[in-house]
Structures are given as C-alpha cells and as structure tokens.
Design a protein around this nucleic acid. Sequence first.
RNA 1: GGCCCCGUCGUCUAGUCUGGUCUAGGACACAAGGUUUUCAACCUUGCAACACGGGUUCAAAUCCCGUCGGGGUCACCA
Length: 506
Amino acid sequence: MTDVRVRIAPSPTGAPHVGTAYIALFNLVFAKVNQGKFILRIEDTDQTRSRKVYETAVLDALKWVGLSWDEGPDVGGKYGPYRQSERTEIYRKYAEQLVEEGKAYRCFCTPEMLEQLRKDQKPIKTNNIYRDADEKTIQDKLEKNEPYTIRLKVPEEGECVISDRFREEVRYNYSEVDDQIILKSDGFPTYHLANVVDDHLMKISHVIRGEEWLTSTPKHVLLYEYLGWEKPEFIHMPLLKNPDGSKLSKRKNPTSIFYYREAGFLPEALLNYLSLMGYSRPNGEEKFSLEEMIVDFDINRVSLGGSVFDLQKLSWLSGKYIREDLTPQQLAKKLVAWRINEEFIAQLMPLVSERMDTLGDFMPLASFFWSRDVEYTSETVLPKKKEAKETAELLQVLLFAFEEQEEWLADQISISIRAIAQIHEWKIREITHPLFVAISGKKVAPPLFDSMEYLGKDICRVRIVKAMETLGGVSKKRLQKLDSLWKKSMKGQFEEQVLEIQKPSD
RNA sequence: GGCCCCGUCGUCUAGUCUGGUCUAGGACACAAGGUUUUCAACCUUGCAACACGGGUUCAAAUCCCGUCGGGGUCACCA
C-alpha cells in the first residue's frame, strides 16, 4: 500500500467550526494508525469571504482541541505552499491544459445570466451555452477582454461510479451533473479544481471529508480522469446534526470551537465527545484520550447515520474529566488560564468600579462573565410596551446584524444595535433591556456593549438565542421569512444606517 | 422537486458483513431509592428502541424487495 497521507482543508470564511475539528480528528487518527501523515491546507480561494483572522483562528482552534499536523502553512512541508491563494498559477495551468485538450471550455455567461437561468428553474445542463461555441466567437470575446470562467466538460451521458469506503459503489448519471465552473473569472479556482489538483500534488491517499461532498464527487472523479491522475480513496463521514436533525448550524447550536473554549469546556472532553459521534471503541469505553483512540482505531467501525450533537452529554464528559483527571492544583491552574486571572479581571474594572462600595461587591456584579448560563424569567426579558413575539424577532434580526460584523468590539456592537433600533423604530432602551437580561441575567449590570465584547461573540449568540426561546421563540417558518427579508432589504438598510451613524458629526 | 445517502431507546451507540448465544447490551437525559448537614458527585434500580409492510428461512435487528421517514445536494461558497 502506498503511504497514507490525509488532510483537513478548512476554508477561513468564519469562526472555526466543530465540524472541522470533527473531520480533522478522524483524518489525524486515520493517519496515525496507518503511520501516515496528516496535512492541513487552507482553502482560501473565495476572495470575497476569506479572511486572514479566520485562518489564524482555525489553526488556534484546532491546536486548542489538541490536534496537530505534520505539514501545513505554519509548519511547512515539502509539498507547499499549503495555502491555496498562493498556488493560483498551478490551478490556472491545469485549467488551461484542460481547455486545450478539449476537456473544459471558456464560458462568457455573466452572473446575471446565470441567476436568470436559475430563476427559470432550468438549472441542469442549461448553463453550458458556450460548450460548443465556435472558435471565432470565443476569440472575438477574448479580444474584447470579456471576463470568462472555465467550465468542465461533463459527459452528456454515462455513469460515474464512486467507490466510497462506507457505501461501496455510489452511482451518478453524468447527465445530471452540470458543467461545473472550475476557474472563476477572477482567476481563482473553485473548490473542485483546487481540491483535486492539491490532493494529487500533495499525494493525498485518502480523502476523508463530510458527507455533504458526496454529491460533488463525480466532478472530482472526472477531473482525476481528465488529468490522468490516480484517484484517492473516498471516505465520506456522517454529518453532525442539530437536535432537530438538520445539519449542524450556529442558529440552533453553538458551532464555533471558540464557544466551547470560552464557555469553559475542557478541550480533551470536546475532542473525546467528537470521536463518539459515529465512532465507538471495541471495548465500549466512552472516555478515552486521543492516544488511546489511536491504539485500536478502525475506520470501518464508523457508523453512518448522522449524530445529533448533544450538549448535555458533552457537559457530562467534561465533568468527568474535571472530576477524574485533575488534582485541585491542576484545576485551579486551568481556571486561571481560562479567565479567572488578573488580565481579564483588570479589563472589567472600568465597568464595575463605580458600582462598587466594597471589594465584595465585585463578584455579584460580574459573575455572569464566568457563568456557563444565566437564569431569568420571560417577564424580566420583555421590555415595557412590547410583545414577546416581536421582541424575539427583533433579537433574531440583531443576530443577523451581528453576523455582518467582522470584529466583535464594543463600538461596533453599539453601532449595530443603534442601526437596528433606527430601522425598526424601537427605542435603544427597548433593545438594550432584553439584551441586558439575556447577557447578564440581570436588569442592572455593567455597561452592556463592553460586557458583550469581553464575553465574546459566541457566548453572546448563545445567550441571545436562549432569550429568544424564553420569549417563546421564533417559528421555523417565520425564521425563514425573516432570513429572506433580511437578505432582500433589511441588510441593505442596516448597512446604510451603519454608515450614517459612523459619519462624523460636525 | 430531481439525484444521492441514511434509518436500533428522546439522544450517542453495541449487535448487522459472517442469520440462532438478542425475552436487543452500554452511555447521556429522565424517574425512584441509597449515601451525604445541603447540593453536586457517587452507587443501585427503573423507564425506554430494531420505522412500516411483504418475502427468503426451521430461525431475521441481521439477507432481499417495496413503502414511509429523515438528511444532503442541485452557486463565479467551500
């Protein structure tokens, strides 16, 4: 057997996701048990969404849970660079090669045209307008410098047979696969091209990834065949799910790894819990370390139905680690390293000093900074003259607004809140009231915006969601409605309003 | 909706490949009891599942077919 080389390929477009740690874990363990190598590659080909801060964040988050890699952008390796934005020339070369060989073609459709096609609900095989365009029109457009993408020529008939470790053979008809864009008009590759090229160049032997990729595997298989490369073995892992059974999402569950860090879960417990998702040890043990898992890991023991991420069981496991594995001294050290330290407390002084008469007043004032959860009733969250339902919905809109913020700083939080208040014609106080309670559990608390900043975005999101639920929640239907409303109009208004507020007043 | 994947207690799972040892085992949660100055932890007990229907077979959670249910995916996002 060839050397085992596997990889995790996160894209730095948001907070580091527990799903990334989950897939990384299984890749790492698979590599270790086969004396192979585990590679980390940054897939930052989406120029509009990728951010350097998120890249640092994924690396930090994965390290925090206790994962490490043999090759990656931070540790190097002989197959680098390990950041796709630094490899664009390579992808372009292969894309051009495919065009020359007639296995791909230039497409001059504009995003608007494609959008229209989608609206007309004729998505499959109708966007290949330029597939057989004659040389002259293409040359013509090239000379006019019209932007183009490169599309893969997917056969019009035939079958693609994928061998997946867990599912044996999965069959797809090429007639149902679009001519996929592999190179965008900005010159960057899409996932499909970059992924296949890198996996080949980096000698990846097994592609262990989430099941959401299963349906796009035919495109990847085709790419390997067109390029004349040997295919890796595909292993599609089951998905992590929300309690309602849908794919794990931050609206319904904390998905950011940092949430678990900020909320004080032990990283070894998180990793251990993640390994329980779809995997069981032969001896039935539930509490085990990464090292123990590696000893007798067998990927064939993975079970397929996606698993619901259960915070309660994770908490129990974390508690088990605290009780069984730590001496009082070690626990105390963990607490200090977490956020019971001078640095964190000093930060809070400006917020509380005026509200203190004695030192003993501090803890009651600030206790919510160290609590996993805060307690209150629905009456205390609800502002005067407002209905529970509208308040819950406003909080949801606020959550949308917070997602637009790239940095979680008091100033920006304040601006977002003021903008939302403006748009919905609520008094600031009517918004901050439920927020105070949601965040601190109390009506009177240290300054809200700073508190929210120090508490972190992930904790705040979870607390706001809880407040919404306390108010009776927002129905699934209504949520969808709000979501589309937000995208269609409110988001624009919000952005305008933000600019308005930021305008220097003279 | 098309295509694809999946289907054991509320949840995570063992068992399925290699039918019998499964009146389906463990864990979380929940309930009761014990222990404890209280609570938590801990211990004991309880609750609770083979999605449904049809085959094959002496025998099906396990093999086959159908139905239903859930999920994923259909972007110049990954």
